[in-house]
Write a protein that binds this DNA or RNA. Structure first.
Lengths: 155, 155
DNA sequence: CTAAGTGCAAATTTTTTGCTTCTGC
DNA sequence: GCAGAAGCAAAAAATTTGCACTTAG
């Protein structure tokens, strides 16, 4: 479940390379913001990333975090996830995969083992509406942890 | 494509009935807010609904629109749609159906002819994550209108 | 009549921007 | 060295809330 340190380092260097290829400077701040995303499966929001990066770069500002996340999303190096109208969360895994959003605690989890091939091939039904370039699939409900907290204890 | 007046009236009376059943007062404001949603396929946001309803109820306030939309969503009489991090739009069609979000103009359109049965039956893959009660499927890309505007004209 | 709902104004929350200073390449 | 990036502070956008008055049932 957890991500190995080795794995993170691999992702970090491919991130640096990708920055160079995209003409982006690989600044200390960007590297650390990206590290937070690469190191977790939690899909944190901007505020959370800010709090965590600040432990290593105390002088970083929240707007740099926002600017960086937006930039990386534009460059398609990360994606936005989360429910409609809720605060935005980010995912460094850009391979398409569905999510589960908990309506109690807001947590976003990856859902493994669902084949999105047919949906990602952009079915004919779309042709009259527009030209798709991505697909997003998400379930909403109560996550196992929240269900346990409210259900088992019995008030 | 458009919605007939007859159709709207039918939806309005079933809305009134549903309010009663839910213990909600069928106020003038609520009826008109709901009418805006029932009368369009456009999935308007709160601000747009406010502007339109104000033509008929000039004294209505924006916060009443927000409060009402939130209430109706909690009671599952409408749903939220739109891309992550974008302003929330609403849909009075609560039958599950996928959407197409234009990344140029923000428009949200219904996608017809896609069977969501298998996804809505909440596949086994979900059981370890949580208990789902709804599913969202959305494509993102450039809608036919925006593509025409930017493509055909040729700058 | 009375609990629920509305309007108003002000507050909160989330995200963006202008400008000056700094730094990776 | 210089274009791009960061920091700061302030603004903007979206949404929510407290309270006194109004209204549907």
């Amino acid at each position: 479940m957890a991500i190995s340190g080795e794995d993170i380092e691999r992702r970090m260097s491919s991130f640096a390379a990708l920055c160079r290829r995209q003409g982006l400077k690989a600044t200390h701040q960007r590297m650390e913001i990206h590290r937070e995303l690469a190191a977790t499966l939690e899909h944190p929001d901007a505020e959370t990333i800010y709090r965590r990066v600040r432990r290593r770069i105390p002088a970083i500002s929240l707007d740099t975090v926002y600017r960086t996340l937006r930039l990386l999303e534009e460059k398609r190096m990360i994606t936005r996830v989360g429910g409609v109208g809720e605060r935005t969360r980010f995912d460094s895994n850009t391979e398409r995969h569905p999510h589960f959003v908990c309506t109690e605690c807001g947590t976003v989890s990856d859902v493994e083992g669902i084949e999105m091939g047919a949906l990602a091939d952009f079915p004919d039904a779309l042709s009259s509406v527009g030209e798709a370039d991505s697909v997003y699939l998400e379930w909403r409900g109560v996550c196992v942890r929240c269900r346990q907290d409210s259900g088992v204890a019995g008030a």
